[in-house]
Amino acid sequence: MTARDSIPDDPPEKVEEIFDKCVRVFLLKGYKSCTMDDIAQAAGCEPDWLKERYPTKSELTAAALRWYYIKYSSNIRSELAIHQDIYAAMEATLFAFIDICFDQLETGRGLFVRTFIDISNVDDTVLQAYQELQDGWEAQILEKFSLCRSELKNPEDAEILACYVITVIEGLYELVKLGKSREVMYKVAILSLNVIETKLKYGQPDRHSG
């Protein structure tokens, strides 16, 4: 059984606690210097239990990174599926993304994806996981724009608009980390959608409710 397979069998709260604590241990004790025992102690679990699931730090880190990406992308995937038109789909995506970030903070978790990505620069296992996950995440947005290409004045704008939304999402993540309020972030999301609105053939009804 791989580390990835073990995730669904364990209580999500416990797994998330481990993934959150492991980053804090990496930052304070060092990715190279810390031990699995340090991480188990910080997360309040048995070292053997932890090592059985994640035999190495690399596997634990890759699993943690995967967990974060899946958490965000599964919510966003469902928003993309619910909303047929591109404006509504992107509005729901941005709002869902903001909500997940705030839910993380409100439950005492950190927003540590950047540190995982920095670790990927010194660990090939983590790098491989990161590249696959990032590609998959970007592909979701791109696929929706491709499906809704006909809604655009210029169908060839689909790819660049997908890149724009991904850029905005990355920026939203950083501003939430900076401590901006949920209301401010919703407002920013609505402003950012102005770009998509101007590219639509038929515009959008006034649906901005915040």
Partner: peptide, 27 residues
């Protein structure tokens, strides 16, 4: 102003993701 702060942060991340010079300017 907050929107453009978001765009700056997003651009900074996209530079690190290796987005092309041309695409950064398009953003």
């Amino acid at each position: 102003a907050q929107y453009y702060a978001t765009v700056f942060e997003g651009l900074s991340v996209m530079v690190q993701h290796g987005m092309s010079h041309n695409d950064l300017y398009k953003m």
